[in-house]
Amino acid sequence: MKRILISSFDMEVGGVERSLLSMLNNFDYENHEVDLMLYSHTGDFMNLLPQKARLLQELPAYKTFRLSIGETVKRGNIGIGALRLYSKLIATLDKSAESGYKQMQYMWKYSLPLLPKLDKEYDVAISYLWPHYFVAYKVDAKKKIAWIHTDYSTVDTEIQMDLELWDRFHYIAAVSEECKNAFLVKYPALSKKVIVLENITAPVLVRELSKEKVDNPLLGDSRFKIITVARLSHAKGIDQAVKAMKKLIAKGYEDLVWYVVGYGGDENALRKLITSNGLEDHFILLGKKINPYPFIKEADLYVQPSRYEGKAVTVGEAQIIGKPVLITNYPTARSQVQDGVDGIICDLSIEGIAETIEMMYHNPELRSRLSHNCLSTNYENHSELDKLYQLV
């Protein structure tokens, strides 16, 4: 019986958390003893965790990474709070679009002396979500694996700090071949460590959940319905979607509506953008939904307007449900969609999104063919876990 540790932040609603759930629900527990370390026992997916994975107790020092600095200090973690404030101040000097990545790096690195180690030793320790400092420095294991879910060539991080971190892992698991290649653009010296382990899909479960009865405004909407399921963040490009919709409405497409399922730090800015463009009736933020599949099912078109991705879980799930899919041409897009076969890849721009939606709106035969191809494809890939067992 091999002892495995899997660590992540929490079980809030998100693509990474969905993929973690799929992996845990399909794991071989007869030959593996699995401990799950979540820094915070929070999130709507907590009650979906399989009982066969042993959830370790929450450690207060790690929970602070899901709390505000003020709340961290209030709970008595004054040292960590001060170090987080220092990390935030350093990061504010950075002018990148998402300086939060560097802030996260500083926060973990500087807090390391104040974070406890796990007592137990493992055969394999898996860090499922970046930054991977906990498994790298606070866990004893014969082998360590870090998962990567995004396109690191587009993420602005401190490369030297990253290299010191990656050096502590035996393997780096990318969720697609393109995700791996993009990672190696930034870290070519790590080529011997990087392997591909795709997100585990659960087609039967996704299709079953898509039939669930929920309060769904798409059901009573007779317009041409676009749907996106994504975190409200710079990476997911929802602001580009709003501006693309503005162009389409300006061209007279009044019977279009775009629904977005998801939540995140950009929500207030997006609501202001929607209002300033007069799109309140045409661009609707539905907020967090534990089960997004009934919303996808009722849409006419699924669109992923991202600036970058590793491999978007929700795109694959839309394909499983049989929706025609449109994604932007982010660097890893071709790992997700065969252009013209089970989806369309458009130029990564506001104009590209708007023009391709217009083309697909006028082409029901294309949408029907894409839908048919998706429904005819077997997206089940539980065999991906065999690669992990081989590493173990």
Score class of each variant (00 low, 15 high):
Y330R: 02
K247R: 15
V260R: 04
A312C: 14
K311Q: 15
G262T: 10
T328G: 06
P305T: 15
I249D: 02
N373R: 13
I350C: 10
G265E: 09
P331M: 05
V315A: 06
V313T: 14
Y259D: 09
I321W: 12
E358T: 04
E267V: 00
E254A: 08
V337W: 09
A333G: 07
G316A: 13
I320T: 04
A354D: 10
N373E: 13
N291A: 09
G340A: 14
I345S: 04
E351H: 12
E298Y: 09
M359C: 03
I249H: 03
K247V: 04
T275G: 00
I274Y: 05
Q319S: 10
Y302D: 04
K272H: 12
I296Q: 06
M359K: 15
I345M: 06
H372N: 11
L370H: 08
P292K: 01
I344Y: 07
G352A: 13
L270F: 06
V242T: 07
L370Y: 05
Q338S: 12
T275Q: 10
E267N: 02
D255Q: 13
K323Y: 06
A312I: 00
A250S: 15
D266K: 05
D255K: 13
L286S: 05
I238V: 15
D281P: 01
A333S: 15
S306T: 07
K246A: 15
I353K: 03
L370A: 10
K288M: 12
E267H: 00
E365V: 11
G316V: 07
K272E: 15
I290T: 15
D255S: 13
M245K: 06
Y302I: 04
Q336W: 00
C346A: 11
E298N: 13
Q240R: 14
N329D: 14
H282A: 07
G316Q: 11
I284Q: 03
G265K: 08
P294H: 07
A299D: 08
S371D: 07
Q319C: 08
K247M: 14
K251A: 14
I357C: 06
A333C: 14
S306W: 01
L375E: 11
A244F: 05
G310L: 00
G262M: 08
A250L: 08
E355R: 14
L279D: 09
E380K: 14
V325A: 02
A269P: 02
L270D: 05
E309D: 08
N378H: 12
G287P: 09
I296T: 02
H362D: 11
M360H: 06
L366H: 08
P331I: 01
T275D: 10
V261Y: 04
A269K: 11
A318V: 11
R367S: 12
I357D: 03
V257N: 05
K247W: 02
V242M: 05
G310Y: 01
Q304P: 05
T356E: 15
G340N: 02
N291Y: 11
I238W: 06
A318F: 02
